[in-house]
Simulated scan of single mutants.
Amino acid sequence: MASTQSPADSKVFKFVPRRFVPEWLGSPWAWFLTRKLGTLLLSFAFLVVVTFSIVLLIPGDAARAAAGPDASLDVVEATRQSLGLNEPVWRRFLNYVGDIFSGTLGTSFRVGTVGEQIAVRAPYTLIVAGSAILITLILAFVLGVGVTVLTRDGRRAWLAQVFSWVTAVVDAIPVYVRGTLLIIVFALSLGMLPAGGAQQPSSFVLPIVALAIGPVCSLSRIVRREADSALQANYIRTTDGWRLAGRTVYLKYLLPNVVTAALTLSGLMLSGMIGGALVMEQVFSWPGLGTSVVNAIITRDYPVIQGTILVLGMVAVIINILIDVALAAVDPRHLESRSDS
């Protein structure tokens, strides 16, 4: 049974007089969300420092990269002056932070502000990645639990073997190879879908499938393993004596435990899909952030690299926080399990 001790009474506040502890911290959800907000802010501060350090650590002269390889020394010095690269590091850092909070995220060496470029390209990346994440969660649970139910107690052993073999093989194929194969089959051979670009709604299909199919296979194996372990637990076996309907057993007793375990393991996997989306965009000539980052690396447009990494890093952090919130909603014990950490 979960403890009824409020977070305000936990050892986190044992050296703090109760009159100095806000009453709202007595709610488990309030304390939980406060900690997650703290995690978000700390992650943001860390990413700001890391992305600012990129320009300092990357070899080469940023002013020379911005002015062009054939520019004269005078032009390079003028470029360095206009970009503020001759200022002390601390002042450049303050300017960078100011650009972040202003929403511009700095000025591109090529065209316009970084914020404007990200605002144009981010929807393409987020739609594909978000759709792939949603499809992954739904299909992985359906496939994992479905195969477990169909193969329960040693039935249909062939299905379990085929499922394990197929999902392992497909998951091992890199995302760029999966994307290339999808283009060959569905775009070039069958002519059913566009091979690239984002000119029509059907253009979204192949990038989403290429990004989602690997994580679906990986997560569905995790779900199947957790579901199989849950079916062997005593509390599930006890339900056989109660003569409960199979639907009741699976939905009321099996699914909540599987969801909790699978979500715990899927946080890093879903965050990794953001990185996979950047690779996928190169295969499908997708006008998202991945294409923008690659072009920025080629042209050494450091502000674009900084801003894009900052945005993608925060997206990954937010995904993990949302996973934690979902876990707490499914199993309230997670509200208190880390309250003293």
Score class of each variant (00 low, 15 high):
G130I: 11
G130E: 13
A132H: 03
I133R: 06
L134T: 14
T136R: 11
T136P: 02
L137F: 13
L137R: 08
L139S: 14
F141G: 01
F141A: 01
F141K: 00
L143M: 13
G144N: 11
G144E: 08
V145W: 06
G146Q: 01
V147H: 09
T148I: 00
V149D: 05
L150R: 14
R152I: 01
D153I: 00
G154C: 12
G154A: 12
G154N: 12
G154L: 11
R155S: 05
R156C: 02
R156N: 15
W158G: 11
L159N: 05
A160I: 00
Q161M: 09
Q161K: 14
S164M: 14
W165A: 15
T167I: 06
T167C: 10
V169Y: 11
V170N: 10
D171F: 15
D171Y: 15
D171E: 11
D171I: 00
P174C: 13
V175E: 15
V175L: 06
V175Q: 13
Y176W: 15
Y176G: 00
R178Y: 00
R178H: 00
G179N: 10
G179Q: 11
G179Y: 11
L181G: 04
L182A: 10
L182D: 10
I184W: 14
I184H: 02
I184T: 10
V185L: 15
F186Y: 07
F186L: 14
F186W: 09
A187G: 03
L188T: 13
L188C: 00
L188P: 00
S189T: 15
L190I: 01
L190K: 01
G191H: 09
M192D: 00
P194N: 08
A195E: 10
A195L: 03
A195R: 13
G196T: 09
G197C: 08
A198V: 06
Q199T: 14
P201M: 07
S203G: 05
V205P: 04
P207M: 08
P207Y: 08
A210D: 07
A210G: 15
